[in-house]
Design a protein around this nucleic acid. Structure first.
Length: 461
RNA sequence: GGCGAGUUGGCAGAGCGGUGAUGCAAAUGAUUGCAAAUCAUUACUAGGCCGGUUCGACUCCGGUGCUCGCCUCCA
């Protein structure tokens, strides 16, 4: 039975699709005014693992992730950089796609951009006005009338009265209530804007997701995901907009990834304690980063540190060391105790730590088989690779992973040459020279392994 | 203050009412010229605290401490 944790019910629920065999999923993407950081990477990787897994299980998944390419921060940053908002967002979208590709994150089926759906947004705002859930204010903005939506706050257990009394939001004169949020924002002189029935302006933040999810997936869809800081107010507002405009349930299952932390604090733009993906990838193998991000359950917080990346590297080393030297069979996923437990773990709200534990057991078994039963080892290695492939891991050749180095380090050819020299020394029982070479390579981060079939090598993480 | 999550061995991190996952780190043995990798074994006698239910609780219930997230733009 496949079940997942639903933020709406605060519990795990068996999954029932709207349409048999089909899953429509929308995930809130990035506001493209800056490079993506590890927090973004976590959401990307988490939902990539989820999508890959569901597809491997036979679901027809339609995965949509939006791009927010119009907003105050974009306008501000573009002005600072002396470029147009379009130039800025184009650059950042390209950078995001590069970052994703390096982390083996598959592209969503659709990546709608807010600026390409202005008419859909205007239509939805108009529908909200027509139904009395929104109003055009004296300052040219259009606001959502929060108190008109009776179930407002049910995703995050907010009580409207308490929100009102604790409102930290700057009270905008034109608003009927401080809780009201903007659907359409009147443009100031010279700002990027689109014509609308309420004058030139641009969409508010929340409305784009309501409009684009409707456009791409329909009025009601199965799963809506996002980062840890989105349930309030963003998702709460999406529900209010979509359900008021469409008169239908918006989403059946809400999924939220946990935060990435640094030194016990949430990594965030506003705290300034963030690491960009490309910054991290300069120092670390992308698969190590992917493994790190998926080795902790997607809802838990995860601590970013050098130590945790080192540990991720060690864990992957173990897998690739096990696979190294084995003729990895090309196989289909077989039904056996390992795969049953792997799937059972993933079926239970995508429990990757438990699923990986099964893979580790398989690696141990593989190590035991190596050199004893080559055919069985080959088959088992194939099973490990195909199962890990379901979550986008272990698809490199073991040598490629283990010997991967960064520029400036000793080259593979140099290593091979020294190994030949050392072999001669060893043949002559010149162990002093042999050890000298090994130490020299160790200094350069290269570890040698003398096996019955000669010497192999790998780089230290 | 409100809402939510968590609290497990040296670290990371799961499941489970009764045989202490999994990875890293550590010890011993096998293997090796010595290593590395691997296998076997082992230790650290894990479960915030206080009560309760139970033949038996880390696992269920009540209380409490602490940590973290959200309540404001942020994935």
């Amino acid at each position: 039975m496949f079940q997942l944790y639903n933020t709406l019910s605060k519990s795990k629920q068996p999954f029932t699709p709207i349409e048999a065999g089909k899953i429509r999923m929308y995930v809130c993407g990035v506001t493209v005014y800056d490079l993506c950081h590890i927090g973004h990477a976590r959401v990307m990787v988490s939902f990539d693992v989820i999508t890959r897994y569901l597809r491997a299980r036979g679901w027809d998944v339609e995965y949509v992730r939006n791009i927010t390419d119009v907003d105050d921060k974009i306008l501000k940053r573009a002005a600072e950089n002396g470029e147009t908002p379009d130039q800025l967002t184009q650059r950042m979208i390209e950078a995001m796609h590069e970052d994703e590709a390096s982390l083996s994150v598959l592209r969503p089926d659709q990546e709608p951009r807010a600026t390409h759906h202005i008419q859909d947004i205007i239509d939805m705002v108009q529908a909200l006005i027509d139904k009395g859930f929104a109003y055009a204010a004296s300052n040219g903005d259009v606001y959502y009338r929060v108190e008109k939506f009776e179930s407002y706050g049910r995703l995050t257990n907010k009580v409207v009265d308490e929100l009102r009394s604790g409102a930290r939001v700057e009270v905008e004169e034109a608003k009927e209530s401080p809780l009201d949020f903007v659907l359409w924002k009147a443009a100031k002189e010279g700002e990027t804007s689109w014509e609308s029935p309420w004058g030139a302006g641009r969409p508010g933040w929340h409305i784009e997701c309501s409009a684009m999810s409707k456009c791409c997936l329909g009025e009601t869809f199965d799963i809506h995901g996002g980062g840890p800081d989105l349930p309030f107010p963003h998702h709460e507002n999406e529900i209010a907009q979509s359900e008021a405009a469409n008169g239908k349930t918006y989403v059946n299952y809400w999924m939220h990834a946990g935060p990435v932390r640094v030194n016990k604090e949430k990594m965030s733009k506003s705290l300034g304690n963030f690491f960009t993906i490309r910054e991290v990838l300069k120092e670390h193998n992308p698969e190590v980063v992917r493994y790190f991000l998926s080795s902790v359950h997607y809802r838990s917080s995860i601590d970013y540190s050098l130590d945790s990346l080192k540990e991720a590297r060690s864990a992957l080393d173990r897998f690739y060391q096990a696979l190294d030297g084995v003729d990895i069979a090309e196989v289909e996923i077989a039904s056996n105790d390992y795969t049953d437990r792997f799937f059972a773990a993933m079926d239970d709200d995508f429990n990757t730590p438990m699923a990986f534990a099964v893979l580790f057991e398989m690696a141990s078994e593989l190590n035991r088989l190596k050199g004893k039963d080559d055919a069985a080892a080959s088959q088992l290695a194939g099973q490990i690779k195909v199962l890990a492939g379901v979550v986008g891991l272990l698809q490199q050749s073991p040598k490629e992973f283990l010997q991967q180095g960064s520029a400036g380090e000793i080259s593979g050819d140099q290593v091979e040459a020294l190994i030949v020299e050392r072999k001669e020394a060893r043949a002559n029982k010149d162990f002093a020279r042999s050890d000298e070479i090994r130490d020299q390579l160790a200094q350069a981060g290269v570890i040698l392994k003398d096996g019955p079939d000669g010497t192999t090598w790998y780089r230290e993480g």
